[in-house]
């Protein structure tokens, strides 16, 4: 069933010639990106440069205008006339964590983490709840299982959102500025969970403003500007010795903040 295995040397994510326009506004201008299993890629760059759009094309929350997106052997072409079934197949392998958490407010924390396991993976409620409790314990929130999301702090909600995505056993996790909506100290709780995940070998693409995370945790950093990748390479190299003038300007601007 699964077309890929742990020893597969093909990239887990392969984005080729990706273009995306909203009307006449071209937001992604030909992106190529390949991510290997176990790799942690950080995407940084000024606001409006297309980071979120790139991430959302990877799990097809946005359809793209040209090029292809392949995740774990499932390939989606442009302006996908793709069937829902293909999209679901791709999304099954991809977990996503949003800036604004997007927990389901009408379900308690446990149901939030269990519902997709039951509906998408066909686990029984008992199996799903057991897995959910494992994951909630792992993010330090087992005691919140019966609470509603509104009763949890932002940092707790984001950790629950991470547990919810992990519950489907994804092969890759996408994070779109997961700490930007949080006070710094609450952001730290979330970053700690992400670090642990990284140490556990999870493949991750992380759009972030946290320069420390980009430099210390990720293997590779991509800098985007105006819909293009303007620089990429091993984290330390890119962060400390950027080659292009635009990258230097961006980095010194964020560091001055």
């Amino acid at each position: 069933m699964n077309e890929t295995s742990a020893t597969d040397i093909r990239p887990l994510v392969l984005v080729e010639g990706l273009r995306k326009s909203f009307g006449s506004h071209e937001v992604l201008k030909g992106i190529d990106l390949s991510v290997q299993r176990g790799e942690i890629v950080a995407i940084i760059g000024p606001s409006g440069s297309g980071k979120s759009t790139l991430l959302r094309c990877v799990n097809q929350l946005e359809t793209h205008t040209a090029g292809t997106v392949t995740v774990a052997g499932v390939t989606i072409g442009p302006d996908s006339a793709s069937h829902d079934r293909e999209l679901q197949k791709l999304r099954r392998n991809v977990g996503m964590v949003f800036q604004s958490f997007n927990l389901f407010p009408h379900l308690n924390v446990l149901r939030n983490v269990s519902i997709a396991q039951q509906r998408v993976l066909g686990r029984s409620q008992a199996e799903a709840d057991e897995r959910s409790m494992q994951l909630l314990t792992r993010v330090g929130l087992a005691d919140k299982a019966k609470q509603y999301p509104a009763r949890c702090s932002g940092g707790q909600q984001q950790r629950i959102a991470i547990a919810r995505a992990l519950a489907l056993d994804p092969q890759i996790m996408l994070f779109d500025e997961p700490t930007s909506a949080l006070d710094p100290e609450l952001g730290l709780e979330v970053l700690a969970v992400m670090r642990e995940l990284a140490e556990g070998g999870m493949t991750m693409i992380v759009v972030t403003h946290e320069m420390h995370f980009a430099e210390d945790v990720s293997n590779r950093v991509l800098i985007m500007a105006d819909g293009e990748i303007i620089e990429q390479g091993p984290s330390r190299e890119v962060m400390q010795k950027p080659q292009t003038e635009r990258a230097r300007q961006f980095l010194s601007a964020v560091r001055d903040r």
Binding site: L61, R91, R92, G95, F98, S100, N102, F104, V120
Partner: peptide, 18 residues
């Protein structure tokens, strides 16, 4: 219903009906 709610369900691979 907030757009983010539908996106979260999509990202989890839920079917339209679910």
């Amino acid at each position: 219903v907030a757009a983010g709610q539908k996106e979260a369900a999509d990202a989890l691979g839920m079917s339209r009906l679910d």
